Simulated scan of single mutants.
Amino acid sequence: MSALDLETPGRVGRLRDIARHVSAAPESWGVTPRFDPVSRWYTRLFAAADHEAWLLTWLPGQSTDLHDHGGSAGAFAVVAGELTEETVRAGAGGAAVLRSASFTAGDVRPFGSQHVHRIVNASAGPAISLHVYGPALTQMTRYRLADGALRVLEIDRAGVAW
């Protein structure tokens, strides 16, 4: 499948629909969400031929680094609580800046294969989210934003970093 195929509205919409469906059926997960006071807890729920689903929990203050999904498109659904997503956008003069949006239980956020973001639980309570990626993740690049430019920190590979 080419990167162009991943960007089609139908493809991203399908991942959104899967995230919505799976997040609404916790009895199908086969696992009870757990909360870890040290770091986000996560587990892969399933993998299909063209996508996979992950369940994540977030205590207040827990977050990801800025990252991409290695060319996979996806969607995340907030199952419980509230999460804030910071996305990288071009600002004045082309400098990279962060834009924030909050999502609460029932919200689903689809994204394309070139999406760079950070997710944080900035609320006072715990949160649960379900993430669907297509194709399955093979790598993720972590970044930092410095002086209006996105800089690569590290490339994490499936089976090694997670």
Rank of each mutant, 00 (worst) to 15 (best):
T87I: 09
L130T: 01
P110R: 04
Q114V: 11
V97A: 11
H115Q: 09
D107L: 10
A105N: 04
G81Y: 01
V78G: 04
I119L: 14
S113L: 13
G125P: 11
F103Y: 15
A77N: 00
V78T: 03
V132N: 05
S123F: 02
I119E: 10
V132G: 00
F103S: 12
E85W: 11
R99Q: 15
L137A: 04
S113K: 10
T87L: 13
R118T: 03
S100L: 13
G71W: 10
S102Y: 07
P126V: 02
H69I: 00
G93L: 06
A77I: 04
L83H: 03
I128Y: 08
G106T: 01
G74K: 05
G106F: 09
H117Q: 10
V108H: 11
G112L: 07
T104E: 14
A105F: 07
A96G: 11
T104I: 12
V116K: 06
F103R: 08
S72E: 01
T84Y: 12
V116L: 07
G106N: 04
A136W: 12
L137H: 01
S102Q: 11
V116I: 05
S123V: 02
L130N: 03
G94C: 06
G125T: 13
A136N: 09
R89P: 05
R118Q: 12
G106P: 06
V88K: 00
G74I: 03
G91N: 03
T138I: 09
L130I: 03
A127N: 11
V108A: 10
G74H: 07
R109S: 14
A127H: 07
G70C: 01
T87K: 07
D107R: 03
D107P: 07
I128F: 08
E85D: 15
A122V: 06
G106I: 05
P135N: 06
G112W: 00
A124C: 11
E86N: 12
A96Y: 10
G134R: 04
S123Q: 00
L98Y: 03
V79D: 04
D107K: 10
G81A: 07
G71Q: 00
G93K: 01
